[in-house]
């Protein structure tokens, strides 16, 4: 059963860096996993904890939040909020028993297409190893 398990991943990608990075990965035909459902947001700072929680509630086995590197945010300090808020959510998820590997915050610039492919692949494999979230009983 687990060998055929394909995890569902929701990835929040900021418009200016990570979404462009994903686009470039596609243009360059880099293999990136089809498990990832991208949701474009204007800035990683737009991603509220509620959005991440709802992705889990809606059946995601893992959630990715990708934005511009610190210092490169299109809105200067949007991702400063992200880096303060998301680690708290990450901890909170683990306090109720959701494995920390089911959530990841990272930065991918528009020039980092290979990095996009790598981060998503790593993440999909990590979540695949954990199995479906529903099996944890949540």
């Amino acid at each position: 059963m687990t060998d055929t398990f394909e995890p569902k991943i929701v990835a929040f990608l900021c418009n200016w860096c990570s979404y462009a990075g994903a686009d470039n990965a596609g243009v360059a035909r880099m293999p990136s996993p089809a498990n990832v459902l991208p949701i474009r947001v204007m800035c990683s700072g737009r991603v509220s904890p509620e959005m991440v929680l709802r992705a889990f509630r809606s059946g995601a086995d893992g959630v990715l939040v990708l934005g511009c590197h610190i210092g490169d945010c299109h809105y200067i300090s949007g991702n400063h909020r992200t880096i303060k808020r998301m680690p708290l959510l990450h901890n909170l998820l683990s306090y109720v028993g959701i494995h920390p590997d089911r959530f990841r915050l990272d930065w991918v610039s528009s020039a980092e297409a290979p990095r996009f492919a790598q981060v998503t692949q790593e993440f999909v494999e990590a979540v695949r190893a954990l199995g479906p979230l529903a099996e944890d009983g949540w």
Binding site: P49, E50, L53, R54, F56, R57, L89, L92, L93, V96
Partner: peptide, 25 residues
């Protein structure tokens, strides 16, 4: 209702309790 579905008891995990916990941070 976007975050907490109406008419369900107990409120389905993780929305109600984790939303409140995050807001209390």
């Amino acid at each position: 209702p976007l975050w907490v579905e109406a008419g369900m008891l107990a409120p389905p995990f993780p929305m109600f309790h984790l939303v409140r916990a995050m807001h209390m941070a």
